Computed example of a mutant assay.
Amino acid sequence: MAGTRLRRRDARTDYWPGFVDAMAALLLVIIFLLTIFVLAQFFLGQQLSGRDTVLNRLNAQISELTELLALERAGTRDLQDTIATLTANLGDAEAERERLAGLLAASSSRASETSGALAALESSLDDERRISQRALSQVELLNQQIAALRRQIGALEDALDASENRDRESQAKIADLGRRLNVALAQRVQELSRYRSDFFGRLREILSQRSDIRVVGDRFVFQSEVLFSSGADTINPEGEAELDKLAEAIKELAVQIPAEINWVLRVDGHTDAQPLSGTGRFRNNWELSAARAISVVRYLISQGVDPERLVAAGFGEYQPLESGDDPQALARNRRIELKLTER
């Protein structure tokens, strides 16, 4: 019996600690929830406070807009009242005008009977006189303005006449300068022609009377065989001897021609129409003619001729002296031409 009571007491004593722990845990949960609730209330209060501030500001703006709208409506009503008043006044004025027009018509019909109508007519006449006077004043002002415009037009016409006179004088001066320039150019051409004739005469003297060196028009012509071998651009010894004489003549000419004449000696290379073989240095007659002209210019420069007075050009077979393909025509077309001309 005693053992049974002891076991029951021990069983009751075992429940209490668990109960205490459960209550403590429940208390902690409640405290945690209360804390979260307080924080949520705090943040919600902050948000509500901010929204109240924004709402108050919006209410204030709505109040200002409401006042402005009320003022605008009041102004609109005033304008409407003013328009109504003006409309009424206009109606009264038109009615008065019609009444006065009726009275004027009646007075006109009784002008010979009433002195009042005569006074009205005299008043109208005075008004017409005043209107006429104003019109005359305006006409006088317009006449003055027209006179001023005429003076300005006259001044412009005088200036235009003076400008035309100056233009005619300028045109005359330009024409005179053109005539002088043409005369000067003609004199230059004549001087250059004279020096060309002297130069060619000197060349005839120093280069003898060879049949393969001749004058054709305003050009001095070397047959290519005098200077070059067939298909080559290297000057042979015989050609160097002839070009030495030519260089001396050019240097003598350079001393004689005045410095104001800007002359050059153009060296033109020409070939016949026979195509070149594919084994040589040159692909076509263009290259051969240009290379020969350049070789002559280089040799003259090496003999002391001023390079500024020399020009090289190649024409290939496209400017023949003679047509045909016989040996004599082909030989005459293979040539080096010298032409004295202005730059």
Rank of each mutant, 00 (worst) to 15 (best):
A60M: 06
E157S: 08
S289V: 00
E98R: 12
R196Y: 00
A95V: 05
L246D: 03
L340V: 08
R97K: 12
D127M: 12
F37M: 08
L125N: 01
A2S: 11
R134W: 00
R194L: 08
A186T: 09
S277V: 01
V20G: 14
A120D: 15
Q61P: 04
S289A: 07
K173Y: 13
E72F: 11
L227G: 02
E191M: 11
I336H: 04
L185Q: 09
T279D: 14
A259M: 13
D127H: 10
A101V: 09
R150V: 06
D325L: 04
Q41V: 01
A254H: 04
I257M: 02
N262A: 07
L338G: 00
N236D: 05
Q190N: 03
L288K: 05
S137R: 06
L300A: 02
A70R: 02
T35Y: 15
R188S: 12
D218S: 14
A290L: 15
G91A: 14
Q41I: 08
A84Y: 02
F199W: 05
L243Q: 07
F19Y: 14
Q61W: 10
D92N: 08
R281K: 08
G316W: 04
E94C: 08
V38P: 09
L300W: 01
L90P: 01
W16R: 14
L136T: 10
R57E: 15
V20Q: 14
S295R: 05
A22T: 01
D176Y: 06
V139A: 13
D10A: 11
A74I: 02
A11G: 00
A186R: 00
Q256G: 02
R219T: 09
D244M: 04
G217M: 10
S63I: 07
F222Y: 05
L340N: 00
A95H: 06
L28R: 11
L160K: 04
I213Y: 01
S63F: 01
L69W: 14
V29P: 06
S230L: 13
A249E: 01
R5L: 13
R110E: 14
S112T: 11
E337V: 10
T4K: 11
L100A: 13
R214E: 15
A40I: 06
V297T: 08
L44R: 01
F228M: 10
S230I: 05
R110P: 08
L243H: 02
E225S: 14
R57N: 15
N143P: 08
A147G: 11
